[in-house]
């Protein structure tokens, strides 16, 4: 007699927990999406409409705001182009060489292997900000100010990307395969490029996205490297806009500019979100 009552009790408590879970999740989702919704709405409104106050209904000035921004004095499109060049090159170089580094540790056996692996794990968390002073001085000496190189090449040594790829390699790249390639007479570099790289594609894709995004969003170091107006990336231009008295500008253009710097990443993310969300947990904590 007591058992069915227990069952019913249990199922009602599960039911109640489910309802609470849905309510909390919906509230949090609204909290996450609200800002981007408002942003999108505001980028469709003219400056006059924006001054009239808040609304949740889109207006019709999206194209007009875009055109005004193209013709404005803000070098937004130059900035987007610069950001795109730096972020794409970083993603490419960083993932290729991080895979190579992971391959070196995974496939070969050499004296300093353990030491180097431990060392990379230890420097993984040290932030770049603490060396930025020496970095700026060195780049000045090397005559690399107003050059994209200081923002692209350092991503070759990316401990986090390396660690993720190393973890993935352990399950995706059997050593027997490399052994077989050697027997077939394939050189080591060719084996890496034609056998290891293709097998690592899913993990490389995830890391390429992360590198792209962090490079695209990077603000602190580029401000010290890119001084020339036409070299500046989009976060620097946004910071400049903030330091001018921009609330008096055409706010339609301002919202359009924020939209242009945020939405490309969101769109790519939404297309690839399945891989990204399942990819985050993989490399980081499986210890």
């Amino acid at each position: 007699m007591s058992e069915p009552i227990g069952e019913i009790k249990k199922s009602t408590s599960t039911h109640a927990r489910r309802v609470i879970a849905y309510i909390v999740l919906i509230i949090l989702s609204i909290l996450c999406l609200f800002w981007f919704y408002i942003l999108l709405i505001y980028s469709t409104r003219s400056n006059g409409e924006i001054q009239k106050g808040i609304t949740f209904i889109p207006s019709t000035h999206f194209v007009e705001n875009f055109k005004n921004l193209v013709n404005s004095s803000q070098p937004v499109f130059q900035g987007l182009r610069n950001s795109l060049i730096i972020a794409c090159s970083s993603a490419l170089l960083s993932t290729y060489f991080s895979t190579l580094t992971a391959y070196a540790i995974h496939v070969y056996d050499f004296k300093l292997k353990k030491f180097i692996f431990t060392f990379i794990l230890m420097i993984m968390m040290v932030p770049t900000q603490v060396t930025v002073l020496g970095f700026i001085q060195l780049m000045t000496k090397m005559n690399l100010i107003n050059n994209f190189i200081p923002l692209i090449v350092p991503t070759i040594a990316a401990p986090v990307t390396f660690y993720y790829l190393k973890q993935y390699m352990e399950s995706a790249l059997p050593l027997a395969l490399i052994e077989a390639a050697r027997i077939d007479g394939s050189g080591e570099i060719r084996t890496f490029n034609t056998i290891a790289l293709p097998l690592m594609k899913p993990a490389i894709a995830v890391q390429a996205i992360f590198t792209f995004v962090s490079s695209w969003n990077n603000y602190f170091i580029p401000t010290f490297i890119l001084k020339k107006e036409k070299m500046k990336t989009i976060p620097i231009i946004i910071a400049q806009l903030r330091s001018s008295d921009y609330l008096k500008f055409d706010m339609g253009q301002v919202y359009m500019m924020i939209t242009l710097s945020i939405f490309p990443v969101i769109i790519v993310y939404l297309i690839l979100s399945k891989h990204i969300v399942s990819g985050i947990a993989m490399g980081s904590v499986k210890g």
Partner: peptide, 16 residues
């Protein structure tokens, strides 16, 4: 949805 804000440019998000 809840992971999305992590990818947003912090400077643009702040300006917003």
């Amino acid at each position: 949805v809840i992971y999305m804000p992590n990818l947003i440019m912090a400077s643009a998000f702040s300006l917003l």
